[in-house]
Design a protein around this nucleic acid. Structure first.
Length: 500
RNA sequence: GCCCCCAUCGUCUAGCGGUCCAGGACGCCGCCCUUUCAAGGCGGUAGCACGGGUUCGAACCCCGUUGGGGGCACCA
């Protein structure tokens, strides 16, 4: 027997967990799972346990572990027990829990719930074929009742046994939090391996053991794990009988996050990599909102909400069971509305690191740069989708010379543009008072009235000359902020490039 | 092959037996506003996979079909 015991969890308290393996890239589907566990815990006033499943030394790395922590914190997910915060049920890294697994495995063997199995895969296959069965059926439970003499004979051959759990002879059923009742018929799941021949415990064993020992009440995970649930149910029953677990947790299997086509979003899909969102300047609250929409909805006629509102309303039971396609366009639209909702100072301070990163402003910005930034911020805010858009949109205000985008030149600096730029140059050169209003009046007089142009044709070339692009903040304000000298220099530079 | 999951506009979804000739959002299209592009406002486009039941009544319940996905390891 063992002294290992699950902690007492008061009735009604919800404890969820998030237990990734730190192997390389952080997948958006993984973060969606983390988010739902977090929301469920916070909504119910329960706890979220963070455990690291780093048992595969060849694939796990400290670097991706750190990276994962960073991604979680960036999204705004916090946990009550786990790495960095500790807790009474640690250690929270599986690589430090070998003794626990060894002890539980021994107790399971001793109690007869598990047994030693010596069959090789080849032998199992051969037996199934001999019986006219499909080898795909897997292990045939043949070693369940080996005698001590038989076991010894195998050992004498030099075989090291695996430890298998004896599956019960009854249907395995549970009420899934998102799918309702799910049933696997008795006998449809073979006795599975808990511990390898070399003594290394396997995922289907350590995962429920840790969940039990950490007092997890609600397991919310991807639907890819649904077929392994019957085995875990059997394991829980055994763990409960030997006094390690306090019963079986509730399970909820979250739908897949899909990529293009009909396939699950794979590591190869560029949008699967969580990093691209922070890098592009998605807002944590914007991405949280979008990720939440992948399988959940807050109300019939609403899909924009804050993380706090999500926590307030979240109900696992109302998570959809069907797979959701990750739609970058919609994610952008949701983010853009969060971006526009930001108070101006907040918006400005969030944009600044992106301008710094692009080398456009100093770190921290100079007083002049800060003044320009604050002046342009309200005008930029409503034409951006992600924070990094600021680099392209506002770059022209923070450089001496601007490079005109080829596409913009093709569009706006063709025939007729020369005359427009000449007229604009003349009007602005003569301008006394360099203010937005004066610039507006001067340009309208010179171009719309003077040249008889439609506004769209009149201001296109000027905009491209000044900003280098066809999309920019409002023109007159931009010109005022740019100042006379730089504006005239750019007009002249564009004039050299423009057709008459 | 066996087991399991899923099935409402192109996409994400609301709908949990009548209030649905199906609502919202993204996308797309058009109009308005307008100095460009956006944003905003207004309008439009488009869907209950199919077949049987159950019921006075079905997008909603049951069965089947079809389609899609996943699993069947001494990986996690």
């Amino acid at each position: 027997m063992t002294s290992l015991r699950a902690p007492e969890v008061p009735a009604g308290v919800v404890r969820t967990r998030f237990c990734p393996s730190p192997t390389g890239m952080v997948h958006v589907g993984l973060m969606r799972t983390a988010l739902f566990n977090w929301a469920h815990a916070r909504h119910t006033g329960g706890q979220l346990v963070f455990r690291v499943e780093d048992t595969d030394a060849s694939r796990d790395s400290e670097e991706s572990y750190e990276h994962l922590l960073g991604s979680l914190r960036w999204l705004g997910i916090d946990w009550d027990e786990g790495p960095e915060v500790g807790g009474p049920n640690g250690p929270y890294r599986q690589s430090q829990r070998h003794d626990v697994y060894r002890e539980v495995a021994a107790a399971l063997l001793e109690s007869g719930h598990a047994y030693e199995s010596f069959s090789t895969n080849e032998e199992v296959d051969a037996r199934r074929r001999a019986a006219g069965q499909d080898p795909k059926l897997g292990y045939d439970n043949a070693d369940r009742f080996l005698t001590d003499a038989q076991k010894q004979a195998f050992r004498d051959e030099g075989r090291a046994p695996v430890l298998r759990l004896r599956m019960p002879d009854e249907d395995l059923v549970w009420t899934d939090l998102v799918r309702g009742e799910v049933r696997f018929a008795a006998g449809s799941v073979p006795d599975f391996v808990l511990v390898r021949g070399n003594g290394v415990p396997l995922y289907p064993f350590v995962n429920p053991v840790d969940d039990a020992l950490m007092g997890i009440t609600d397991v919310l995970r991807g639907e890819d794990l649904l077929p392994s649930t019957p085995r875990q149910l059997a394991l829980y029953a055994a763990l409960t009988e030997i006094g390690v677990a306090n019963g079986t947790p509730r399970f909820g299997h979250l739908p897949y996050v899909m990529g293009e086509g009909t396939k699950k979003l794979s590591k190869r899909d560029p949008q699967a990599n969580f990093d691209v969102y922070p890098e592009r300047g998605f807002l944590p609250e914007g991405l949280t909102n979008y990720l939440a929409l992948l399988g959940w909805s807050i109300a019939e006629d609403r899909d924009v909400f804050s993380p706090a509102e999500m926590v307030e309303a979240f109900d696992v039971t109302r998570v959809s069971a069907n797979p959701a396609r990750f739609d970058v366009k919609k994610a952008e639209a949701i983010n853009a509305t969060h971006l526009r909702d930001l108070p101006l100072p907040e918006f400005t301070s969030r944009v600044t690191p992106f301008l710094v990163g692009a080398g456009l402003v100093a770190d921290p910005p100079t007083a002049d740069q800060q003044a320009v930034l604050e002046a342009i911020a309200p005008l930029a805010q409503e034409r951006m989708i992600v924070l990094s858009d600021a680099v392209g949109l506002l770059g022209f205000l923070f450089t001496d010379e601007v490079e005109i985008e080829p596409a913009a030149a093709d569009k706006q600096l063709k025939a007729g543009a020369g005359a427009v730029l000449d007229a604009a140059t003349a009007a602005l050169t003569a301008l006394g008072d360099w203010t937005t209003a004066a610039v507006e009046t001067a340009l309208k007089e010179a171009l719309v009235e003077g040249l008889g142009l439609k506004p769209r044709n009149a201001f296109g070339p000027v905009r491209v000359a000044v900003s280098g692009r066809t999309v920019s903040p409002p023109l007159y304000e931009s010109i005022e902020l740019l100042g006379r000298e730089r504006t005239l220099a750019r007009l002249a530079a564009a004039r050299r490039q423009a057709a008459d």
